[in-house]
Design a protein around this nucleic acid. Sequence first.
RNA 1: GCCCGGAUGGUGGAAUCGGUAGACACGAAGGACUUAAAAUCCUUUGGCCAUUGCGGCUGUGCGGGUUCAAGUCCCGCUCCGGGUACCA
Length: 928
Amino acid sequence: MDYNFREIEKKWQNQWVKDKTYEVKVDNSKPKFYVLDMFPYPSGAGLHVGHPLGYIASDIYSRYKRLKGFNVLHPMGYDSYGLPAEQYAIQTGQHPAVTTEKNINRYREQLDKIGFSYDWSREVRTCEPNYYKWTQWAFIQMFNHYYDFERQCARPISELVEKFEREDAEWKSLTEAQKSERLMQYRIAYLADTKVNWCPALGTVLANDEVSEGLSVRGGFPVEQKVMRQWSLRVSAYAERLLRGLETVDWTESLKETQRNWIGRSEGAEMYFPVKDKDVELEIFTTRADTVFGVTFMVLAPESQYVDMITTAEQRGAVDEYLAMVKKRTERERISDRRVTGVFTGAYAINPLTKAEIPVYVSDYVLAGYGTGAIMAVPAHDSRDYAFAKHFDLPIIPLIEGADVSEESYDAKEGKVINSGFLNGMEVKAAIAEMKRYITENGLGRVKVNYRLRDAIFSRQRYWGEPFPVYYKEGVTCVLDESKLPLLLPEIKEFKPTADGRPPLGHAENWVTEEGYPIELNTMPGFAGSSAYYLRYMDPHNTEALVGKEADEYWRQVDLYVGGTEHATGHLIYSRFWNKFLYDLGLVCEEEPYKKLVNQGMIQGRSNFVYRFIGKGATGNLFISYNLINNPEYKDCTQPIHVDVNIVNNDILDINAFRAWNPEYKDAQFVFADGSSTLDADNPYLGKPSEQQYICGYAVEKMSKSMYNVVNPDNVVEKYGADTLRLYEMFLGPLEQSKPWDTKGIDGVSRFLRKMWKLYADDNGWIIDNAEPTPEMMKALHKTIEKVAWDIENFSFNTTIPAFMVCVNELTSLKCHSRKVLEPLAVIIAPYAPHLAEELWHACGNTTTVCDAKFPEVDKKWLVEDTVKQPVAINGKVKDTIDIAAGASQADVREAAFTALSKKGLMEGKNIVKEIIIPGKMVNFVVK
RNA sequence: GCCCGGAUGGUGGAAUCGGUAGACACGAAGGACUUAAAAUCCUUUGGCCAUUGCGGCUGUGCGGGUUCAAGUCCCGCUCCGGGUACCA
């Protein structure tokens, strides 16, 4: 009876569906555990072997927890709104809903083959009305709330209106439109003129985390800065709580650090610098209050409102010219060109401490979006100010004893302060504190905490996203009544922006409310739908609420979240923000959505190359084996060409498949690894001699179609089976580590599963008996139980597989066919290889599913060793190994060790200085 | 530049609390079975030396240090990967 994985896997997958094995319900009699994968965007390319890595890990964990008696919620769904489907629609006219549906079906088909324990009855799709209803609903709540900084939580905007009516005389005289505009400054979802990242190629704005180095993350198109009226979410209001919350979650230190940097809290002071002859005070932010005595000039961001206010008539022309130049530059140009530029405004500010008159400049090294958009420049102790001062020949005053500022600035916050009046002689840190006290007391400024974290731009000029439940009524921005949700995405014929430059929804007919008011044309960004999906899984069919009270109070939060690090500054910030907002409203009971987070590494592609001979005027397709390309005969005469990894096996090229792969290569000729060639008249390629191999080169690259290195999990499942794929992906290396996909070792894993099968079955059928197991067998089993449990709980899945291999080898050599060993063995391997485990579990005579078995407890009595081999060393050098009885006393161990060494004549005439005796581990005699 | 990781055989990687480095797997070499191949099984496999003396030396990127004992801890480098970037 052979291990027919195709038949077994299909059989059990069908059975699980039929029995609804993985469906879960709220069950207060059991402890809950919520395991979540970051749901995928269903792209047209389908899944490659990299995608399932995290899914397999979380599936192992889920299955393990279930065996341990937990009620495990393990759902899956699709982040199905997004750019690629829309770009595809623009090119082909194919409706994004159609492409998305097709891609989802393909994903599902691929996922099903791998044997995951998802509860598919809870599937969510962000593009479905009964899902995005709740995205729109949350938006309405954000619109209707403001952030109360004193109480540090979101409050209904009606409270603010009441307050204005009570306390603000002006309020009553405002028109409805003016009131609306004023409230926008407080709402958590608000409309404002914002400087945005505009991507002309995509025709939309992008959030900060969607832009990298001046290019869009999706597509890599240039991005420019533009002021537009856009919806934003006041994420920055939650900066402090987002930062503090990190202390309460079990994430990797590096990921928390990335978020801390992104939030970018810095403590400093805000100060005012009066402008000479003008009724203007420049407000600046600094973390180096101690350096005020060294301020020799000031700089404004080009977008700063101060620029207009203080520029003198003589300098007006030069300033306008500079502003025009800055405006023309794209974000990318600004980043790549770091030359010092700037212009004098003609105005002078007064240093509030030295009373010196200092010039005010405009330069784009000062950012409008951070602090106040204006800085006090301290060239001696800030490298950017230093470069500016050198360029414009401005004075540089050193403020720290011994700092040499003739060549570069001294940026470190240490040393003794000089040239600074009452601060002289203090250490920098003390001086900062002293100056903060001074400016507060003298009304020169105040202590202030600044954050780098920006509000999230929430509008996209796209079609394939959630429509805003927003309409415009005579200059007043309104949200729809909740009862009108969902606001369905209208059908349109063209997915491009309109001819007059409005977003695609401008094509929609009758895009107005019942009363005829126009509805918002923008749609929500990708992160809208993914921000609260984990809550919806808890209660996916609830029509009354995003998540019902009972479901929320039972499932609470995600206990284990598995996904890639690429979401560190996007999804994982937005999602935490969204959850905190809902928490403030009393709608969810946990403030942090993800308790533990594990990042799986990326699976990179391993590309293969063939080497075409191009030197010496060669024409046609002659390929040289990789091991020969550096031979003098071929050196520098070959050109590497990507070859499809699916026709290469262990770097050996399948010649015939290669000739068939691309018509261009149908007459390809080869020089083989041994130097023989298909061109040799007496040595024609016959198709199989093993020494006549063509060896390909390789490189580790991103897995992508254009590199021909994409490996599809379906092919692996077809060839080796789902259980082998699952085991092998784990065996590849530590979960968090990035590694290239390489099928070299997959045979070993596949062999192991066949060996395991043979423990239960031979040619005639099952060979399981009821014999009483020997202590050796029990030891092999319990050693493995202990190891498997430890490994899974510590996410060390890669080291479990060797433990299984050793166990099966031991049981094989012990000829163990006892049910009392094989049955628990099937259970402990079930998280890793569920199909095989299910088959073996039933072979042991069970009729229920292995998923409902109990994970066996370790019986330590089998693990106690009678004797322990223990090294004995002299001066740390191991000289001998002794057998000692388990639990032997320190004195006994010493005696045995000394006798053993004496017998070898090693202790003769030695003077023992010190003895280190650790029973069971090590004995060391230190001698002279 | 700054922040965070990492570096162990031909390869992927083990070593969980400072206690015999190289588990397990791949690859390679040799052998058994076979007309042959596949599959399967057995042996060897960090390096150097000795292999009729069963062992010796060396060894975890480099240089120091702590310790009876260091892949593991400390200090200083080199290289590689990731994040971030005029954040005042």
